[in-house]
């Protein structure tokens, strides 16, 4: 997982609320056997509509998504996060998120920050007035800005720390690698091993 401190990227407005994980990625994509390559699956039914914001070339390469209330509710599928990440998003800003989605995001290095609903509306207006405008996320200072509008966002301390350090769960555990090795050194010889094959 890459460390996140401050970054700037194209902002995309998603003027919808209650975007559940079925909308983010429909169940038919769950049959796949990979953990990457889900960019085509993101919002796939909405993308049938040529007017949908993802189809607007002005937002090509967007990395910051501004969404409405209750983004990522519904099923626990981690694929929703993979799809956003694979499409290129590094951060989602919304007034409120589904709990499980938010937890999954933290594990996969996707920043989710909450901002008041009226501020999200102001961000949408700024972005739509100037499609392609860039947003800056400052995780250290917990602020998000587009043009002259800057707002604080909320993120819990533990997730923020992990994002700043670029630590996924595995990365975090591997910080204790010495202790794992130490434990392994004391592992009794009667305990099972699958190799060599007997």
């Amino acid at each position: 997982m890459d460390k996140i401190t401050t970054f700037t990227g194209v902002a995309m407005p998603l003027r919808r609320s209650n975007v559940d994980t079925d909308q983010i990625i429909p169940a038919v994509f769950l049959k796949r056997v990979t953990k990457t390559g889900y960019e085509d699956a993101l919002f796939s039914s909405w993308r049938q509509d040529p007017e949908f914001v993802l189809n607007d070339p002005a937002y090509t390469g967007a990395t910051v998504l501004f969404a409405g209330q209750d983004f990522g509710t519904g099923s626990s599928r981690e694929h929703a996060v993979w799809a956003l990440r694979d499409y290129g998003f590094k951060a989602v800003i919304a007034p409120r998120f589904g709990d499980i989605f938010r937890g999954n995001s933290g594990k996969q290095g996707l920043l989710t920050g909450t901002v008041d609903e009226d501020l999200v509306e102001q961000f949408w207006e700024r972005i739509e007035a100037q499609p392609g405008i860039r947003a800056t996320i400052d995780l250290l200072g917990r602020t998000v800005s587009v043009g002259d509008l800057s707002a604080p966002f909320d993120i819990d301390d533990y997730t923020r720390w992990r994002l700043l350090e670029g630590l996924d769960d595995i990365g975090l555990t591997l910080r204790d690698e010495d202790r794992i090795s130490e434990f392994e050194a004391g592992r009794e010889s009667w305990r099972p091993t699958t190799l060599p094959v007997r």
Binding site: M1, V33, K35, T36, E78, R179, E184, P192, T194
Partner: peptide, 25 residues
């Protein structure tokens, strides 16, 4: 707590994304 695992059993349904994750990192 961090718990050590003595034996990990794997089958075809729940493992592909896990291996893919390892590859990605």
């Amino acid at each position: 707590d961090l718990i050590y695992i003595d034996l990990h059993l794997v089958h075809e349904v729940t493992s592909p994304q896990a291996f893919d994750g390892l590859r990605a990192e």
